[in-house]
Simulated scan of single mutants.
Amino acid sequence: MTKIKAQAEACSGERTYQELLVNQNPIAQPLASRRLTRKLYKCIKKAVKQKQIRRGVKEVQKFVNKGEKGVSLLSGIMVWQETHCPMKVYCHLPVMCEDRNLPYVYIPFKTDLGAAAGSKRPTCVIMVKPHEEYQEAYDECLEEVQSLPLPL
């Protein structure tokens, strides 16, 4: 059995939040709690329906660098996965977010992040933008993410 198949089988079953934290990367801070992770997944699902997300390192980085046409102020919540992907792929993004005052948070597993975004493929970063259709859920998530302590 190949390594990829073994990982896929291990990922296919239901896992608890504590099981997902076994392979936690120590530099993945701030880490979302189980409750906040669920709220973020629900907010991401609502944002997908309104097409208000950016998915993947390239797309998110381009959005953070350039912004959106006609929008001078960036707003949104950055959500990263913290395991099973080399951190060097997206380790520059937290610094970019801190420079632009964008809130960000890490969650435990990327296949769940991809599934919440309506994709069959896992993804390591998603940016959720605000929209009036799910503003209440977005504000609640934003408040909790901003209350988390940033790493030194």
Rank of each mutant, 00 (worst) to 15 (best):
T83W: 02
S12N: 07
K46T: 03
I27V: 10
D99I: 07
T111V: 11
S119K: 13
E19C: 06
V79L: 07
E68P: 06
G76M: 01
K88Y: 10
Q135P: 01
D139M: 04
N65D: 15
C43Y: 04
V128S: 00
E59F: 09
E14C: 07
G76T: 04
L73I: 14
V89Q: 10
Y134L: 03
K66Q: 15
M127L: 11
S12G: 04
I107H: 00
L36G: 11
P94L: 05
V60P: 05
A116N: 09
L73A: 11
L148P: 02
S75P: 04
E98M: 14
Y41Q: 09
L74Q: 10
S33G: 14
M78Y: 05
D99Y: 00
G13F: 10
K88T: 11
M1G: 15
P108F: 07
Y17P: 00
S33R: 14
Q146R: 13
F63I: 06
C43A: 14
E98D: 07
V89H: 08
P30W: 05
Q81L: 12
H84S: 12
N101I: 07
V125R: 04
V79H: 08
A8N: 11
V128Y: 03
S72T: 06
Q18M: 09
A116I: 01
M127T: 01
K129T: 02
D112M: 10
T16Q: 00
A47W: 07
T37N: 13
G67V: 05
K58V: 04
P94W: 03
E143G: 01
K62L: 10
M78W: 02
E132Q: 14
M96S: 01
S147H: 10
K45G: 04
F109I: 08
S12E: 13
Q50C: 02
K120E: 08
A28N: 05
K42N: 12
E9A: 08
E59T: 15
M1P: 06
P103K: 01
R121W: 07
A137S: 14
E132S: 14
C124F: 08
R15V: 04
E136F: 08
T37S: 15
